[in-house]
Amino acid sequence: MGWTTPKTWNVDELVTAAMMNTHLRDNMNYLFSPNRQQKTGNANYSTTSTSFVDVDSSNLSFSLETYGGPVLVWAMVACKVSTSGAYIGLDVEVDGTRLGAGYSSGLAKFASIYTAPVTIFRVVELSAGTHTFKLQWRVSGGTGYIYGGSTNAQAVFGAMEI
């Protein structure tokens, strides 16, 4: 069950079970368990791309139906870059537009030759409908690595309406 815009009640209106179920029960149920997706990368990834590209278009990408509320987007990855002085830019693309399009390194910049975690949290305002989310990255030079396929690291990417 999704969210239904709550009805405006009238004086002396007969309240039916169907109305209560739709506007109260189902909406309460949705608020307690809103639509959400969380994906995990099941491989180690590398890129040398200097333009933003998908990290994994199959596993770190998803569609989510929302009802007009704000949406929390998150990503957690362990990464490193091969070359000292180079950096990895991480970003989230929603419906073909990057959230960090105004920044050369996207939403997060990581510059270390040693593996460390990077986290993105972002609240976005989206109209009601089905939206496509993709985790993207690029490097300024060298090779960027995300570790998602080993027993000690997992790449996580998710979103939920809040």
Binding site: G41, N42, A43, N44, Y45, S46, T47, T48, S49, T50, S51, V53, D54, V55, D56, S58, N59, S82, R138, V139, T143, G148
Partner: peptide, 28 residues
């Protein structure tokens, strides 16, 4: 070998080449 292929493609293609990605056994 992603790092080696990257260097080879960069040399062969110049400015047309943006980079490559690997993961899940595939290379783009």
């Amino acid at each position: 070998n992603a790092g080696a292929l990257d260097a080879e493609l960069r040399k062969a293609l110049g400015a047309s080449y943006v980079g490559l990605s690997t993961g899940n056994g595939s290379c783009v």
